[in-house]
Simulated scan of single mutants.
Amino acid sequence: MPEPPHAQERPDGERDRPPRARNRAGAERVFVVVGYEDAELLDIACVTSSLDAANRLGARPPYRIRLATPGGRAIGCSSGLRLDGQETLERLTGPIDTLLVSGGYGHERAAADTRLTAHVRRLAAESRRVASVCTGTSILAAAGLLEGRRATTHWAYAGLLAAGHPGVRVDPAPLFVRDGPVSTSAGVTSALDLTLAFIEEDHGADLARWTARALVTYLQRPGNQAQMSMFVAAPPPDHAVVRRLAEHIAGHLDTELTAATLAARAGVSERHLHRLFSEHLGQSPGRFVRGARAEAAAHLLSSTTLPVSAVARRCGFGTAETLRHTFQDVYGMPPSRYRLAARPAPAA
């Protein structure tokens, strides 16, 4: 990780500097990451490396990062690497600023370990905020910390979480969800987005921006950005009609994509088209088209300077007003606010 950069010239001629350290006399922020056997290394590293970068860039008070494990033992990660525990979970006491439970393939065994979940519950009561990454949500749920709360997890495990914990309002779509003092994030690298949100909350937007720059990533993807993207969430390849239509939709968003048009293109009835989309994509053709257009618009808003009206036309919304209504429904914010939130950090 590079040391804090020197002042750099911005295109407008102004000097751009890392933020001045604040609250130098303040106590450390104790940030405890709970790990266990067969945890996901990236779930842990996204958090700890981001906090370390923030410390190097002047976080005051700094984060004191500790890995707590059962018995204080070293844990084997799913990648095969081992991490030494720094704290014994059973002996650790507060006060703790942030308690975060990592995810990983070992989450089911960890969630079934009543001693582990009891200590997570005990430590949560001594923490200012509580969080989880990926399938670590299941451990918070088993500890009773998500009852009545909205939460997310890795999209592939959302159904299992909802079935096993009916008192949790599982939302599989967002990158992360913050419900009061409890935050949950989606799969793996969404831990980076959540941690940057914590850094911004604790130390301001400037330090979060410089941390993102040091990590060579976006400043922060909005928490309600979808986990699954049309660019990576391909439809099942075993049904040729659905696959061809999905590819056609993605490549022709600015054309007429009504159910009637799509059915005629596929040579099936509208009723059969609805049945195919429901079976293979879990949604109607109209909803799939709307989602594809919304995500394409989100991509253009975050990666170009095109006016909102031009983005709307390119993505098939016709008017900026139609795009605005769709964005409000899908992302919970208007396009202009999304563009501001999703804007990458300025180039160094």
Score class of each variant (00 low, 15 high):
residue 279 E to I: 07
residue 233 A to L: 12
residue 238 D to Q: 03
residue 261 T to L: 06
residue 251 G to T: 04
residue 250 A to E: 06
residue 238 D to S: 02
residue 259 A to M: 09
residue 242 V to Y: 05
residue 256 E to T: 13
residue 255 T to E: 14
residue 273 L to I: 04
residue 241 V to R: 02
residue 276 L to D: 01
residue 246 A to T: 12
residue 266 A to C: 11
residue 276 L to I: 03
residue 267 G to T: 05
residue 230 M to L: 05
residue 231 F to H: 10
residue 223 G to Q: 01
residue 232 V to Y: 10
residue 268 V to D: 00
residue 238 D to F: 11
residue 233 A to V: 09
residue 232 V to L: 13
residue 220 Q to D: 02
residue 251 G to H: 10
residue 228 M to G: 09
residue 244 R to G: 03
residue 279 E to V: 12
residue 277 F to V: 09
residue 252 H to P: 05
residue 275 R to P: 00
residue 232 V to D: 13
residue 269 S to F: 05
residue 269 S to D: 02
residue 246 A to F: 06
residue 257 L to P: 09
residue 267 G to M: 08
residue 249 I to S: 02
residue 254 D to L: 07
residue 272 H to Q: 12
residue 276 L to T: 02
residue 262 L to E: 00
residue 258 T to D: 01
residue 223 G to N: 03
residue 221 R to W: 15
residue 240 A to Q: 14
residue 263 A to P: 06
residue 258 T to Y: 02
residue 277 F to Q: 06
residue 258 T to S: 15
residue 221 R to D: 04
residue 230 M to W: 06
residue 234 A to S: 14
residue 254 D to G: 13
residue 257 L to A: 11
residue 239 H to L: 03
residue 267 G to L: 08
residue 222 P to S: 08
residue 221 R to K: 12
residue 275 R to A: 06
residue 222 P to Y: 11
residue 220 Q to I: 05
residue 253 L to V: 06
residue 263 A to R: 04
residue 254 D to W: 07
residue 231 F to K: 06
residue 276 L to S: 04
residue 227 Q to K: 11
residue 267 G to V: 08
residue 224 N to S: 14
residue 234 A to Y: 11
residue 254 D to C: 07
residue 236 P to M: 08
residue 255 T to V: 10
residue 250 A to T: 07
residue 233 A to D: 15
residue 274 H to S: 12
residue 221 R to S: 13
residue 276 L to G: 02
residue 232 V to A: 14
residue 276 L to N: 02
residue 263 A to I: 06
residue 248 H to I: 05
residue 255 T to W: 08
residue 279 E to S: 14
residue 270 E to T: 14
residue 249 I to R: 01
residue 275 R to L: 03
residue 276 L to Q: 04
residue 248 H to D: 09
residue 258 T to I: 03
residue 276 L to V: 05
residue 248 H to M: 06
residue 231 F to S: 10
residue 274 H to R: 14
residue 276 L to F: 10
residue 264 A to C: 03
residue 226 A to P: 08
residue 221 R to F: 15
residue 229 S to V: 03
residue 264 A to P: 00
residue 253 L to R: 04
residue 227 Q to F: 15
residue 230 M to A: 03
residue 247 E to F: 09
residue 270 E to C: 10
residue 221 R to C: 09
residue 247 E to L: 12
residue 257 L to D: 01
residue 237 P to C: 05
residue 231 F to V: 15
residue 272 H to W: 09
residue 236 P to E: 15
residue 243 R to W: 10
residue 255 T to N: 07
residue 247 E to T: 11
residue 261 T to M: 09
residue 228 M to T: 13
residue 221 R to I: 14
residue 222 P to V: 07
residue 262 L to V: 01
residue 232 V to T: 15
residue 237 P to K: 10
residue 228 M to V: 15
residue 245 L to I: 06
residue 248 H to L: 10
residue 255 T to H: 12
residue 258 T to E: 00
residue 277 F to S: 13
residue 280 H to S: 00
residue 230 M to P: 03
residue 247 E to N: 08
residue 231 F to P: 01
residue 278 S to D: 15
residue 241 V to T: 05
residue 250 A to S: 12
residue 253 L to S: 04
residue 236 P to H: 12
residue 240 A to F: 11
residue 244 R to I: 01
residue 252 H to D: 07
residue 251 G to P: 02
residue 224 N to R: 15
residue 238 D to I: 00
residue 256 E to C: 07
residue 231 F to I: 13
residue 263 A to H: 07
residue 236 P to L: 11
residue 266 A to R: 08
residue 278 S to C: 09
residue 229 S to D: 03
residue 227 Q to P: 11
residue 236 P to A: 14
residue 262 L to C: 03
residue 220 Q to Y: 04
residue 264 A to Y: 02
residue 269 S to A: 08
